[in-house]
């Protein structure tokens, strides 16, 4: 399982493994790492908005809802300060699909804007 460390905000806040983008998002002040791609048609989940109860992310493309509980559980991660280390399960990578092309093992860092509702709130202490 690849272990990747990246920033929780700003430049380099998205790690792309085999073309799959992962970001750190926050819902109800609790953070998690998620695949920033809607399971429906690949919409930008990093630009989604949580439902009022925080239970789902609503994709901006087709308003498809994805369970936050499921996303939270998917990728084990630990944030230290403004960086997060995530252990990406093989099942979360595109190569896990039966018809997927072979993994090229590429890892890169990019910037992906997050919808304000998913961005980490600034410390208020």
């Amino acid at each position: 399982m690849p272990v990747v460390t990246f920033s929780v905000s700003g430049a380099g806040n998205c790690v792309v493994i085999d073309d799959a983008p992962f970001v750190y998002a926050t819902v109800d002040r609790r953070g998690f790492v998620m695949l920033a791609r809607c399971p429906h048609r690949g919409g930008p989940l990093h630009l989604s908005t949580p439902t009022a109860d925080g239970a789902y992310l609503v994709c901006p493309w087709h308003e498809r809802r994805t369970s936050v509980a499921r996303l939270r559980a998917q990728i084990p991660a630990v944030r230290r300060g403004d960086r997060v280390a995530a252990v990406i399960p093989d099942a979360a990578l595109p190569g896990a699909a039966p018809d997927a092309p072979a993994s090229d093992g590429s890892v890169s860092l990019e910037y992906r804007p997050l919808s304000p509702a998913l961005a980490r709130p600034r410390a208020t202490v």
Partner: peptide, 24 residues
Amino acid sequence: GFLDAEVETSGKWTAESLHSYLDS
């Protein structure tokens, strides 16, 4: 108490993911 804000774990950790993390 400041460590509560500094360190946050998430996701379902398994023995296998812990192994990968410790290796890293």
